[in-house]
Design a protein around this nucleic acid. Structure first.
Lengths: 222, 222
DNA sequence: CCATGAAATATCCTATAGGATCCACGATGA
DNA sequence: TCATCGTGGATCCTATAGGATATTTCATGG
């Protein structure tokens, strides 16, 4: 039985779509930190009215990705200062180490398997499209950490980690291509500890992973 | 030199005010968990247009205090389930114990003093106005924990704790009047450890405080 | 040459109106 | 008696227009 080509399933609302699109623009630095955001211009660009734009911006502000000055306008949140960068990794370490520990302690077989599977996947380096590679690798990293957080069994912890991960994008765009394999290897070690139900090992592996990731990103401050 | 009676200092915008007002209504259960929220009715009540209401609701949704079903409307987030309650206190323990530890390790004299001062203040029981007493005590508790978080020196940690504290209000309204003094005493012990620059002591005191607070609130599930 | 003040502009903020969708109620048929 | 379908009402969602404010620019005086 042939189905109509286009069923209007609009599960999400316009404001929702705008939020996702806008978030993507900020995270991939199509809107650079510090840029002013013109509501009317965005409305024209997305072909919607300013109202859903305002709604999306309000949510993004709660996420800390944009800032609002009354009667002046929205701006993309500025680049992280060194102090904010340190605070973020301190917080990530606190949250994610516990996430890994709990995942090792509590996760069921399906979650452990999902974590291991994600850690096993790789993205092929694409010399001709560094931006695409960067995006793919970033997405891979985000998925892995989110899967671990999901396996921890605490939804609030998962939300907090996700929120922090978004802040990571407010850092200067920098990608240590040469060390991508190191990241993957660290992920594998975490996944193995979780698979083996070794809380201490999982926490330690995550702690080392974050410490190294911090070092890698630190180079961007030069 | 006489100044005009009314300088329109409107630092905050309308949407901001609505957000604060609405948040207050939710936190004090003037809007009960599960209640539907009629945007137009709220707009009439606050004497503003629906737009700032929508903006405030979008932010409250990001905070997790209200939920939105597309093309249906907003509702106040439902009461915490037992599992969510446990997850929340698990998360609070993780965040606040570290908060207390870092405050003891790093805070400057002014912050330590502020924490101690807040721990020393009390609210007089008001038999004739239990709601007012409850509100005052809740505010006191929130201020104390926020001051400790501020003293920890990590703004992200402070934000996370504040966010969680709001969720606490989604619990069934219950107040162990008889044990208010116990709470104050526990606060004093935490403050003393921070004042004495004793990280282990501060963390332990906070851990015990949260464990006891959890027990106190657990009674509301009966 | 610099500082000060006022006018012009762009933008945000708010209010109102119309279209689209979902929920509830009642009627019909098995 | 139960399930299914159609209609009415309420609500949300979107679009557009007008008022208010901050920023910028330019002219003027020191």
């Amino acid at each position: 039985m042939a189905r109509p080509d286009q069923i209007r399933f609009r599960r999400s609302t316009l404001g929702e779509d705008v939020y996702e699109a806008l978030k993507g623009l900020v995270l991939e630095h199509s809107l650079s930190p510090g840029d002013r955001i013109n509501i009317d211009a965005l409305a024209r660009e997305f072909a919607v009215s300013p109202t859903p734009i305002r709604e999306a911006l309000a949510r993004l502000e709660a996420d800390g990705l944009v800032r609002k000055r009354p009667l002046v306008g929205y701006t993309v949140s500025p680049l992280l200062t060194r102090a904010e960068f340190d605070a973020m990794f301190e917080m990530r370490s606190l949250l994610e180490c516990t996430s890994a520990r709990w995942a090792a302690e509590r996760a069921d077989a399906a979650h452990r398997e999902a974590v291991s599977a994600e850690a096993a996947t790789t993205v092929a380096p694409q010399e001709d499209d560094p931006d695409g590679w960067h995006a793919a690798f970033t997405a891979l990293d985000a998925r892995f950490h989110d899967l671990v957080a999901e396996a921890s069994g605490n939804g609030l912890l998962r939300d907090g980690i996700d929120r922090l991960h978004a802040h990571l994008h407010l850092h200067r765009r920098y990608f240590p291509y040469a060390q991508a394999s190191a990241t993957v290897e660290e992920h594998r070690r975490i996944a193995a500890a979780i698979q083996a139900a070794d809380p201490d090992g999982a926490e330690a592996a995550m702690r080392e992973h974050l410490a190294r990731a911090r070092e890698r990103h630190l180079a961007a401050f030069d």
